[in-house]
Structures are given as structure tokens and as C-alpha cells.
Amino acid sequence: MKQNGTELGYNSKVEGDVVVTKADAVINWVRSHSVWPMPMGLACCAIELMGASASRFDIARFGMEVMRFSPRQSDCMIVAGTVTYKMAPAVRRIYDQMAEPKWVVAMGACASTGGMYRSYATMQGVDHVVPVDVYISGCPPRPEALLDGMMRLQEKIRTEHSSRELLGGREEQMKLRA
């Protein structure tokens, strides 16, 4: 790539067919650009989630257009909506069925804190049952806010110690997780 007469980035003439990098960088690069979301749509936030995946906001720009309704095929659960106590165990079970590595985004006020539902029926934040990576404010959040949250999730994925988690022993994995 030529820019103002200076060569930047990978130069095949100098480096040949070899790219030197870190395993973490490669794994995280792959993971962060193919996040397959599992739309856990529980209330009106799910409408904005649909908006984010349609052409105007186009979540496909980030490699996240592959919404999978099977937890087996997805690696990021987007909890979009009010989590009632009746629903919470189902959310947890679906999370348990997702294959590692997996992430959770709490979309909107209800999923993050219970939102305006301060009552006997509503769980005050889905983080009581699943570990949440990104919280998105809003009621409901605009699709841009969801995209921003997903970009922050990508940033978070890029900082993970993926190779150690993949190659390290079970004990080390648990240590990293804790």
C-alpha cells in the first residue's frame, strides 16, 4: 500500500510469503470479525436488534449478520429485553448450550438492570444468571448504540489471551476465567 510515497504494512517483496505475528492476534482477529449472535429477543429491544441487522444499519459490516437461533451455532448472546424470573433459567440454559468461546451482550436498560420494571416479576439485570461482557444503555437503544456495543465487544475480544486459553491446561483456563 503506497501512501505519500511511504510504504506501510505488509510488503511481500521484503517479507516473502511469511507473516510474523502472535497467535493471540490471529485468533482474536478471526474471532472478533465473525461473531455470530444469538438473538435472545425478549421485548421491544428485539425490534431495534432487527433494525440493526437490516440494510440501513447493516450489522453485516462487522461480520455479525449470521444471527443463529440455535445456541450451538452462535457465540454471542444478545439479551434484548426484559428478563423475567420465569424466563431467567431458560436464558441460562441457552447460554450453557452455547459452545466456547462465548460472550453476552446485555442490550438495553431491562437486560442490564431491570430497567423500569422494579417489581416482583423482573430480574434486576441478566448478570444475575449469565456473565455479561458489554452493557448497552437505552430504552430501547438505537441500532447505532447496539453496533457501538458490538464494536466494544470486538475490542474486548482482541485483548483476550486466546492461545493460552486454547493451548493451556484446564487449571490455567480456570485461572484466566476467574
Binding site: 424470573y85 420465569k86 431467567a88 433459567p89 441460562r92 440454559r93 430480574m123 444475575h128 444468571v129 449469565v130
Partner: peptide, 11 residues
């Protein structure tokens, strides 16, 4: 409602 989930998450 689900005691298994309740035990696993302590929620």
C-alpha cells in the same frame, strides 16, 4: 423456578 440453575448461579 429452576433449582438447577438456581444452584449453578446462586441467583
Amino acid at each position: 423456578p429452576d433449582s438447577e440453575v438456581g444452584e449453578a448461579t446462586e441467583a
